[in-house]
Amino acid sequence: MAKSLTQEFVKGLWDEVPPFRLVLGLCPTLAVTKAVENGIGMGVATTFVLVFSNILISSMRNVIPSKVRIASFIVIIATFVTIAELLMQAYTYPLFKKLGIFIPLIVVNCIILGRAEAFASKRGVFRSFLDGLGIGIGFTLSLVALAAVRELLGTGSLTFWVKPIQILGPSFKPFSFMVEAPGAFVALGLMLCIMNLAGRK
């Protein structure tokens, strides 16, 4: 069942969009979505790691012995995470501070290892690149959507880059439950419910 190249890319945006359809990579999803800015930063960093590790793993798929494949995948992923970490430390230091330990934790994000094992280790380089890009963009969009809901209800403003923009008027009373830990779980649960409703037809 060979999919066309466009399909490989598009499936990451709706059919298999993490963290909604594949319930993977929940920890960064819940933790960084206090502000839209954090969601964008995390999404871009994850996409970077996902795309490059997919490319490298797929191009080395005939060289890596299958017994030690998981260990090899982890080393490749960890290398790209370190690159992303150092780049963010150098160029976007405030964001790097805010995301904290969740940047090194991209290594144990199940989405990346999942794509490496299920997709990149079996398919060609270009297909793996498209798959990584699609899933990465899907993940970024989900993070942004969740963060927008939480930040808007929790603070009444949206932070796209550095400065918060006030959206709701001064009469709005911030619902601070949403930006705290419990709100993260509830918001994600309700969004999942809405996705189920929308997909049911």
Partner: peptide, 22 residues
């Protein structure tokens, strides 16, 4: 309710549990 089943209701429950720890 059907759309809430499985992971969805689990997450909402986790939120309430998290509220007690909060």
């Amino acid at each position: 309710p059907t759309p809430l089943q499985d992971t969805s209701i689990a997450l909402v429950t986790a939120g309430i549990l998290s509220l007690t720890f909060f």
